[in-house]
Nucleic acid binder design. Structure first.
Length: 433
RNA sequence: GGAAGCGUGGCAGAGUGGUUGAAUGCACCGGUCUUGAAAACCGGCAACGUCGCAAGGCGUUCGUGAGUUCGAAUCUCACCGCUUCCGCCA
């Protein structure tokens, strides 16, 4: 959520920021609404103050009456006076509530403003490559894609996944299922042992407040899987561990010297992929369910930009240890997600596609999520102020599996296990049919 | 699923319709004293919103939402959560 004070005081700055995202916004309706709010709120509060003062007087008189003084007439007079406020006050309060809800609905749907360092551009073609690591492997044979490799090894079975659940689901077996698990554990171990993160296990179903807090609601409900309960309430399947883990601190005031909080969490992620029909239909690149190891940081506001560089580095460390070639890309303003102030994508080399594909997305949200969650920090003696939040994939496990299969494939269709994973596979050096 | 109880400020814990945004203690901050520290003593210390150049004023908030009332932490209803006992169970 943007700071509503910023909208009031510097609407041009907000409009300019949103324009960088390709959003032409007319703030005139907001300003009309805001003027009305101001008038109604001021009036309402004056009436409330009057009511409170009169009620207080009645209370005092009742006290004197109890001691035997004859003040009944005075009490009657005040009761009549305060009764005159009744309906008008109630009408004003209701009107104010409607106005505040409208303002809130408007502001809740505005995305974050891009940081000044974010490249200009409307879509992914304007994203800026920041760096590259590793060289794509040279094959003296035609490399297969992960679908052919996995099926050849008897470890990927998309036909049966369709039978069980439908399209965009994966069934893994044997060595590939094990490799998948090894990847997740390797990532968790690296982040906890080497990067200072605390491992977290969190709910896979969350309430609407949590989805609002990180910015998935109210605007992107169609991207989520929803679970209706018999009592009429609903839960949502998490599209990323970002949601439950960031919401750990929702509604809390943290001591600034407890920060940063660094969490790592391995969960399945569930996405409806509405609107991506026909995109990446082959293989396990784009699934309704996939595993991801997520890094989340809750930091003091001054430190978030340094934290973004560090967090991105933590994700990069996994790719390097696995020996997977990748590049780091700064997303342009028009390609960033709703809540982000800046995002780096890490893209891994996929030989079969002869290109780099997203495997991690690392973002600084500044105070955008913190304002939605009402998460603040306080310095000794100071006023609470919103924290900054960050997160990044470290990494998407399914896509990492794809990258390992494709980059480590051999001419005979077997897969060499990257050295760092061998301890997790009982020393196994190669996956064969 | 059955029964009972409980949700108050960073924590503990008073408060059952009227100058209560809330006693008291702890924690925390500032000061006095002390060579220094501790102890003792004095003072301060909720959040959010809003008006205002500011000083400051006003409003809202005692799990959440609705209701009764001139007035609600206190009364009513619903919901959420927690505790204990019984039952069931991975």
């Amino acid at each position: 959520m943007l700071d509503i004070q910023l909208l009031r005081n510097q609407p041009d700055l907000v409009a300019a920021g949103l324009a960088r995202r390709g959003i032409a916004i007319d703030l005139a309706p907001f300003e009309v609404l805001e003027a009305e709010r101001k008038a109604v709120q001021t009036q309402t509060q004056e009436m409330q103050a009057k009511r409170n003062a009169l009620s207080k007087q009645i209370g005092m008189l009742k006290g004197r009456q109890a001691k035997g003084e004859d003040v009944a007439a005075e009490i009657d007079r005040l009761m009549t006076e305060v009764a005159g406020l009744g309906d008008a006050l109630k009408a004003n309060e209701e009107k104010l509530a409607v106005l505040l809800a409208e303002l809130d609905a408007f502001v809740s749907r505005l995305p974050n403003l891009p940081h000044e360092s974010v490249p200009e551009g409307r879509d992914e073609t304007a994203n800026l490559e920041v760096s590259r690591w590793g060289a794509p492997p040279a094959f003296d044979f035609a490399p297969k894609d992960h679908v052919d490799l996995g099926e050849g090894l008897g470890g990927l079975d998309f036909e049966r996944a369709v039978k069980i659940a439908g399209s965009r689901f994966t069934l893994m077996k044997g060595g590939i299922a094990r490799l998948h698990r090894a990847l997740a554990q390797f990532m968790l171990d690296t982040h906890t042992r080497e990067h200072g993160y605390t491992e977290v296990y969190a709910p896979y179903l969350v309430n609407p407040d949590s989805m609002f807090g990180t910015g998935q609601l109210p605007k992107f409900e169609e991207d989520l899987f929803r679970v209706e309960r018999s009592d009429g309430t609903r839960l949502y399947l998490i599209p990323t561990a970002e949601v439950p883990v960031t919401n750990i601190v929702r509604g809390e005031i943290l001591e600034v010297d407890q920060l940063p909080l660094k969490f790592v969490c391995h969960t399945p992620c569930f996405r409806s992929e509405a609107g991506s029909y026909g995109k990446d239909t082959r293989g396990m690149i784009r699934q309704h369910q996939f595993d991801k190891v997520e890094l989340v940081q809750i930091v003091a506001p001054e430190t978030s930009w340094q934290a973004l560089e560090e967090l991105t580095g933590h994700a990069e460390a996994i790719l390097r240890k696995l020996g997977l070639p990748y590049r780091k890309v700064a997303l342009c303003a028009g390609d960033m997600g709703f809540s982000a102030a800046k995002t780096y994508d890490l893209e891994v080399w996929l030989p079969a596609q002869n290109t780099y594909r997203e495997i991690s997305s690392c973002s600084n949200f500044e105070a955008f999520q913190a304002r939605r969650m009402q998460t603040r920090c306080r310095e000794k003696g100071g006023k609470p102020r919103p924290v900054h939040t960050l997160n990044g994939s470290g990494l998407a496990v399914g896509r990492t599996l794809v990258a390992v299969l494709e980059n480590y494939q051999q001419a005979d269709g077997s897969i060499v296990v990257p050295e760092v994973l061998r301890p997790y596979l009982g020393g196994q050096e190669r996956l064969t049919a």
